[in-house]
Amino acid sequence: MNLTLKIWRQKDSNTKGQMVDYKVTDISEHMSFLEMMDVLNEQLINKGEEPVAFDHDCREGICGMCSMYINGEAHGPDRGVTTCQLHMRMFKDGDTITIEPFRAKAFPVIKDLVVDRSAFERIQQAGGYISVNTSGNTQDANSIPISKHAADEAMDAATCIGCGACVATCKNSSAMLFVGAKVSQYALLPQGQIEAADRVRNMVAQMDLEGFGNCTNTGACEIECPKGISLDNIARMNRELMKASLS
């Protein structure tokens, strides 16, 4: 298929960007979206032009690196996928596709479609972990009884890959689905409950400090999340913070 691409080009974080039109030809419907971008970049390099910068790593939906806001949606029009898992069969021959970087004040553009998502790292560092004594006396995790329900819910929360689609999608650039998932992942397990109050307080404080917006409960983040992280995690985070503030 032949396509017209409208892509955000921005030299660096200090330069103003703009949309630039490109034509790509001979795209197979079996290609992933990133493979289509590779074809475009090959064409640009052959013409002596600057290729489009975009994030990618594992290309199998695990690392959370690939971003892109495609035709007005994070990771494009498909559901439960990252951009690397989005296939060109979702588009038709002759389509015009708009490709933009994830937008949020806390996710500044580094170049073209690459954004700085290190704000998520700083939120994680603020409390997204459990303090474990690794001196050799660590208790076997299997010796701590955990209900199947709690284990499943914690695992569901832990599937968050921190891609930032929730922030990119949110009309307020809120990071609450991400933080909610990270808080829930530990709050649901006995190992995480010891530091639960400090964790939620510190992670929410860091989230606010990074300049993310407030949650309006539109539910858009849940729909666009490639891992289907549920809004229940935001509600749990709210409960955890209320509990921590009262204690």
Binding site: Y69, T98, K105, P108, G211, N214, G219
Partner: peptide, 27 residues
């Protein structure tokens, strides 16, 4: 909250399909 939320936004999207994932009332 609206002012704080507006401050959190980056450059506006050229194309944003809000109707694909949320209700008009919520937005």
């Amino acid at each position: 909250l609206e002012i704080k939320n507006k401050k959190a936004l980056g450059v506006p999207y050229v194309k944003n399909n809000g109707a694909a994932n949320s209700s008009w009332a919520s937005r």
